[in-house]
Design a protein around this nucleic acid. Structure first.
Lengths: 174, 174
DNA sequence: TGTGAAAAAAACACGTG
DNA sequence: CACGTGTTTTTTTCACA
């Protein structure tokens, strides 16, 4: 596995790109005191190395009518790992499940789920999640208030300049 | 509060922009069989109405060395709401906390936290989170495997065409 | 690594239905 | 008033020094 060197300029660029994924090379260059071509080449490197995974438009769930957000713990019965795979596959295909982690502790999985209202959330739980094979227990915590919600990863832990493990390649059209 | 009408063209545009926040108006137009100017005007409307909250570059936490992801439940002692406000403020200022929700159920808050490794996660818990005033109990579930992780909201629930509540305005430079 | 040309895309104004 | 067309401006990409 190859590596990429990330210096403090890269970190500043990444930080700004996390805030504004459409920042122009010119604007970024002005911010970090680098030429446009420098910025362009650095971003290309960051994309190719997989540090930048994707550019995306972030939508407002409340405006779109998705008023319910829940953290749900799921426990599976003990029936071998085939069941786990089936559960993971099924959950990955459910658009209302934004996140699914297999975790340490009492539960097997923790899910982050959105729904339009409590009625439809309840229906999703009863009719879809609980009916998946192997699911023996679910426990949901409904969000009362969203204190903080960000996609922006902390970057200050990166000792500058740092070697970072290289990953997948971002396709041009993705 | 005013409203915006979102039809099936808008939904297709939003869906694609969630996947690729840098899709050009031309490409989007081809996809939904609409002219460039149509797409441009629709996107502008979606931005102004707050449906599109932000454009962002999504970074890869593993590539950046943030190998630990945890879901942490926090319980506060019963000392009035001033304490809750202080906790919420403190947590909002911690970059390693990506998400914080106040929730129903046993715990008061659920947090999504990243760290470079278990040692630094442990240090964060002991030295920073547990020392916040009012915190009497925390319980963490460490992610063993990330089954699914998306920002893409489901859009199929929107009955087409639908009235959507208007929100804040996206500033041009944000 | 910067500079300048070429290509692409976005923003804008205009004319038309 | 909504729509497409054409023009202008911005931004990116690429070749070259």
């Amino acid at each position: 596995m190859s590596a990429i060197t990330v210096d403090r300029y890269d970190l500043e660029i990444l930080s700004e790109l996390q805030r504004n994924g459409r920042a122009t090379n010119g604007a970024l260059g002005e911010r970090v005191h680098l030429s446009m071509s420098q910025v362009s080449r650095r971003i290309q490197r960051l994309e190719e190395s997989g540090v930048i995974r994707q550019y995306a438009a972030l939508l407002d769930s409340e405006v779109l009518g998705l008023g319910v957000l829940a953290i749900t713990s799921v426990t599976l019965g003990r029936h071998g790992e085939t069941q786990g795979d089936a559960f993971e596959q099924a959950v990955a295909d459910m658009p209302e499940v934004l996140e699914c982690l297999s975790v340490t502790g009492e539960a097997d999985y923790i899910l982050r789920v959105v729904a339009t209202d409590l009625a439809s959330f309840s229906e999703f739980m009863m009719k879809r999640l609980l009916r998946l094979p192997g699911v023996v227990n679910v426990k949901s915590n409904i969000a009362l208030k969203r204190i903080k919600e960000t996609h922006a990863l902390p970057l200050n832990h990166v000792t500058q300049p740092a070697q970072v493990t290289r990953r997948v390649v971002l396709s041009k059209s993705a």
